[in-house]
Design a protein around this nucleic acid. Structure first.
Lengths: 256, 256
DNA sequence: TCAATAGTGTCTTTTAGACAGTATTAT
DNA sequence: ATAATACTGTCTAAAAGACACTATTGA
């Protein structure tokens, strides 16, 4: 049997096909605000998400997650990378796919199947680009505030799902590192986790993360050229030990 | 501003659109074979996946994951449910979406974006349907064997990803219950986990799952009408305590 | 009585959890 | 000196891990 014969028989336009396959991206960042105390103090941190204001029909004027249509020549992931680059100017950041949104009628333009990604970006990497943009059409909003708004399409559902996803991953993986500098203190790590997962609370956090055998290995002390422990007094009078993440990925299990 | 005015201006067919958005489903089951020993013994279990043989171009004659094109009137999840029903005759089983496959050129028919699901089905629920089907065109293959085959499209990659996904979920969630009867023994549970995750090994498994406080609650002892412990001697001379899963979902964390 | 699975006793080591106490240092 | 953050000491309770041991029962 000659496959070309079959190929000639194949009629691709026999069926109704989708009108588009966009990607939408929940771009999260943590903003850091210094406290107005006399002495050094831990900063206030806030989880924010990037929204853009729609210019055209449908949902003109309403706020939406950034995103755009996929081209034939690219994969969904490449599409999302491109949109992220166009929107924020950043390229090499953590981005992951998490769900598809395809309910009939979700987009008045037709049959449009949206692929949702989430990205984690450091605040300082967004700063440069945001000034260049049309400031009024892009904003970085606290997530609770964004979730109270009337977002375009089903973007409230997408954002809510994205938030649940990063909350889960924040405590089960080492993605906290995406919001931290290369070297950080235990307090910073603890703060970042609490900013994303408000009800996260671990007594003796420093103990667990530094001395428990099963966790041992996800972070390590930073030492200077002389092998002396490297410290930071960014947030405290007393200098704190700096740590960095290792490549170790702990394996979680409900049966161990 | 009148939205209808904008709607009239909107031209949906200005851009190239996808040629189709199918779902593909990795349908897993565990087959159970009694051992040919004189005395009672634990059965041999094997993880298998359902494959169908393609009839038409492209990849005619080759084996592929079951699936099919999404209709405009349904969501991706509804599409996958429908395909699962058509292929196996089962409806109310565990099924979840796990990834999108959209590399350009992955399908010679054109720009086709595939949405991959995985389903877990009990062997006995597949039995009835498989006899009715054209037996030669559907098979239930051990996963390692399927992964050694030259599958159609990028289905080897999809199957491999699906396998990784259920291995991860097998130890981090309670999906083991999808492969077990309502009431089961600790040995059965242990066997099911090991069948999916070959290098799973827990010493003192019974201890951890029944007496550890943090895990306590994911399963519970079954008792009969008189409140007596309900036992089973299906696989052993000495009767074993039966358990059932509760609704409790343990929260995992690398920081606790 | 033996083979096969089910489950327990007991010991040691590790971890969790609480919480009071000490350490550091810019202001 | 004080306020703010960074740790450590020490105790108790809980859990993990090893492994030899007992229990049950159909063939």
């Amino acid at each position: 049997m000659n496959p070309n014969e079959n190929e000639r028989n194949y009629t691709p336009s026999k069926y109704r096909t989708p009108d588009g396959a966009p990607s939408d991206i929940a771009i999260f960042t943590i903003t850091t605000t210094e406290k107005l105390t006399v002495k050094k103090a831990l900063p206030t941190r806030e989880l924010r998400v990037m929204l853009v204001q729609r210019k055209a029909w449908p949902f003109a004027g309403q706020w939406a997650l950034p995103g755009g249509f996929c081209h034939e020549s690219e994969s969904m992931h490449e599409c999302a990378r491109r949109e992220l680059q166009e929107e924020t100017g950043v390229a090499d950041v953590h981005m992951e796919y998490f769900n598809v949104y395809s309910n009939p009628g979700r987009d008045p333009r037709g049959w449009i199947i949206s692929h949702a990604f989430l990205a984690l970006v450091q605040e300082k990497r967004l700063a440069s680009r945001r000034a260049a943009d049309d400031a009024a059409a892009v904003q970085l909003l606290p997530v609770e505030e964004a979730l109270r708004m009337d977002l375009a399409f089903d973007h409230k559902e997408i954002l809510s799902d994205a938030l649940n996803k990063i909350r889960e991953k924040m405590v089960t993986t080492t993605i906290a590192k995406e919001f931290l500098p290369e070297e950080f203190t235990i307090s910073e790590l603890y703060q970042v986790i609490q900013t994303v997962v408000p009800d996260f609370e671990e007594k003796n956090f420093i103990r667990k993360i530094t001395s428990t055998q099963s966790r041992k290995g996800i972070i390590e002390e930073v030492r200077d050229l002389n092998g002396e422990p490297k410290l930071s007094n960014r947030y405290s009078q007393r200098a704190a030990q700096l740590y960095r993440f290792t490549d170790h990925k702990p394996q979680l299990s409900i049966y161990s």
